[in-house]
Design a protein around this nucleic acid. Structure first.
Lengths: 108, 108
DNA sequence: GGAATATATCAAATTATCTTGATATATCAA
DNA sequence: TTGATATATCAAGATAATTTGATATATTCC
């Protein structure tokens, strides 16, 4: 991603929406230590099973986590690429990164 | 922010919520070129005045932008520190950044 | 002061998201 | 094959965010 090509706005909005909920941020925090199975997340978060499942799906649909089944357990892990892109977005968007067209169009 | 101290979850959730809307991301994109007055944003975004005002307030309440009045105009600008913290969050949360406690507690 | 312009706020209606409880599906173990 | 466990999905209700139109406030210009 170059400094003039910000990611697709819709895609970025989905990342940020996925991260806009405290329960999901807790999940992300837990996954930052490595892959975890749903049952462990449920234990730690002490939250209704369907609710956890809903939040995991939200994170997955946004592309922030991946899952894999192993027998009767399902493991979730953070997607490093998505986190890289988010970090890149935040740093690319900082004023001063753009070459041209920094003039104001009015009221100046 | 160290690699073991993620930012306050509630504060992070507010950042991400502020960035979870396409209109607000457009605003951020426009402000990435530098400070802009509300009237210019309104022109470019072609959106109802109260709606733009609502979204600017949302960004401001989350700490992502600041405003200053100059006569009859109000200028908004991105807060670089907040963007830095977001980038830092995204990179700190990546697996492998944490020293200890990476073992799984169950199903392993 | 009064009109005009820029912006913010408010209330109501709409829409989206979240939670809960119930049920479905998949896997394993006996 | 039956029962148990892990996880996902669904539908209904609860809550929260967004949009719209109306009105309020601040500033400038005459």
């Amino acid at each position: 991603m170059s400094s003039t090509t910000l990611p697709n706005i819709g895609r970025a909005a989905r990342w940020f929406h996925a991260l806009s909920d405290e329960t999901r941020l807790e999940i992300v925090r837990l996954l930052s230590h490595g892959e975890r199975c749903v049952c462990e997340l449920q234990d730690v978060l002490d939250c209704a099973q369907s609710r956890l499942s809903f939040h995991l799906k939200t994170l997955k649909d946004a592309g922030l986590v991946s899952d894999r089944r192993d027998g009767r357990w399902v493991y979730y892990a953070l997607n490093r690429e998505a986190l890289d892109e988010i970090a890149e977005f935040a740093s690319d968007v900082k004023p001063g990164k753009h070459a041209g067209s920094c003039a104001r169009a009015c009221c100046g």
